[in-house]
Write a protein that binds this DNA or RNA. Sequence first.
DNA 1: AAACTATATCGTAATATTGCAATATAAATT
DNA 2: AATTTATATTGCAATATTACGATATAGTTT
Lengths: 110, 110
Amino acid sequence: MGATKTEHFTDYQNHIATLSKALGHPARVAIIEYLMEVDTCICGDIVNELPLAQPTVSQHLKELKNARLIKGSIEGNAICYCIDEKSLTKLRDYFANISDSLEKKKSNCC
Amino acid sequence: MGATKTEHFTDYQNHIATLSKALGHPARVAIIEYLMEVDTCICGDIVNELPLAQPTVSQHLKELKNARLIKGSIEGNAICYCIDEKSLTKLRDYFANISDSLEKKKSNCC
DNA sequence: AAACTATATCGTAATATTGCAATATAAATT
DNA sequence: AATTTATATTGCAATATTACGATATAGTTT
């Protein structure tokens, strides 16, 4: 045991979970916010920005990249990371839908 | 090592990470979707709905409750769970803000 | 009160995540 | 070509998560 039973859930549920999980660590939220803040495409100074060692940051970047929340392109000997709009749009749409439905319902529950 | 260094990040970053992490498992996404689907406040049949044992579901519910994504109230010997709108509104706002900013920027990065 | 129902908690095994030092890789500069 | 710079990978220890059987708790029904 210990492994998530992904096969029992829908692709969409797994997808939302994957995106959410990728943002389930404050360092990764901080990375996204930093990439938002700096207008130009930023390369390696995310490491300087975060209170974590370079390998740790590299690992967090990898997870964000695997979840497709960011994308990186090679720029000389550095790598240029930036936000992948699509995934963030998906999250926006998902939570917008839920909030909309909740408002319509005005459930008097609990 | 192994523990997240929450103290190095802002409260807001930690909060978004906590909410995201709570949704970082397909079972918990499924629970939220199920609670959306059933109009009335549902009690224990979440267990029947999910492909997981009762203690496992109980544990997932606890995590959603800790993150304040759901709330439960005692209803006889059963417990009535339902979505906590506030937290989902926070997530909606967070991702809406990011998506809005991204659209405005139209960054030509990567 | 005994039996039943609904949910939570405990204990534990399997697995995953977090963090970093050390090291590897690869492009850029000297 | 040696050095520097930027990033990734490896290996590993500490910790957290996932899942569930067994058991506890607490209200309900008989």
